[in-house]
Design a protein around this nucleic acid. Sequence first.
DNA 1: AGGGTTTCTTAAACTATCTTAATCGTTCGT
DNA 2: ACGAACGATTAAGATAGTTTAAGAAACCCT
Lengths: 189, 189
Amino acid sequence: MNPEGILLNIQKHVSLNEEEKAHLDTLFAIESFAKQHTILEQGRLCRKLFYVEKGSLRAFNGNQYGKESTIMFAIKDWWITDMYAFTNQTKALLSIETLEHCLLRSISFDVLEHLLLTMPKMERLFRILFQKAYVREQLRVLDNISLSTEERYLQFLSKYPQIAKKVTQKQIASYLGVTPEFLSSVKRK
Amino acid sequence: MNPEGILLNIQKHVSLNEEEKAHLDTLFAIESFAKQHTILEQGRLCRKLFYVEKGSLRAFNGNQYGKESTIMFAIKDWWITDMYAFTNQTKALLSIETLEHCLLRSISFDVLEHLLLTMPKMERLFRILFQKAYVREQLRVLDNISLSTEERYLQFLSKYPQIAKKVTQKQIASYLGVTPEFLSSVKRK
DNA sequence: AGGGTTTCTTAAACTATCTTAATCGTTCGT
DNA sequence: ACGAACGATTAAGATAGTTTAAGAAACCCT
């Protein structure tokens, strides 16, 4: 068992005994993907929730004209899926692609549902994770409706410096909701 | 016990026996507020989570120039607080005001923490609620970064028709992140 | 290392949105 | 019922952001 990975991270929120650790370790499959691989494609059923042990990914929505909007990036120790489609087990609104070689742990919807019903500690874990995720998204909404593009760009850099190092300007622009050309002109100043 | 209120709503997500219902009923205080009352003021400590039994509210952030950005509205059966400040027990980023006379149920941070630790069903309840809230905010972020003001306005009307009836244009504009003047010109078309 | 591909930058013309200010209608307190 | 405050609308001029296009720079791939 890798003491640097998912189990250690889970224990930041709930305590686990050896038996529980062993059990959880069997439930999260190990998956390895090459750079630029699409692990979820918009329109397909979203069956899995992923935890990032290594690498980085991007979740985005593409509209009918080919414009992409980046909903989130994920790096080491983040969870990622199309949570809307995963929760409702419907067609994905998002595509998720690896930005580099990735080592992920995955759990299917059914296995997770069963785990939540049988292990209260996991309800607690995900309650905490979703609570934090909700707060994070709400703060992002506030940024989106109250700040200028320049302010949002600087906020992104200071909030996620590790991500900023790994992704392109174009991807940052699509996360901020502006064109790459305009982001470039904002930076020029 | 009011069978139309919070207990009935909780039971949409988890089952409760009579004893549990009675217990929960004692934990959520009943609070009544007049129209236009500020139940949380930006900068103050955020101590309570509220459930709306009756009435409607608005949570917003005001910047140093007096510009307000509406983060959320809440009507019957919604939960509301400044979740960032509540979670971290720090100064509120948001103010919350009643838009009409309100009947609320409230629970303090400490009582809720204890409840979550002692009643696994409540961890499950809030896991489900936060998961839905996360998805909702993420979809709003997607709207914000990918849609035009007109599209976001129409989306708001169709998604929250009950809210649209109760709030002013100015408040809708501050929820969409545009000026009331511009929203007015968008509608004119 | 070279050729093709993608990203980044710049600029000009165009569109979306804001600011300010004036007018009008509605609400609220006394 | 009255005037004062507030909300909604309109319009003109200013700023923010997009589109298109082109060249320069960085990144692959073999």
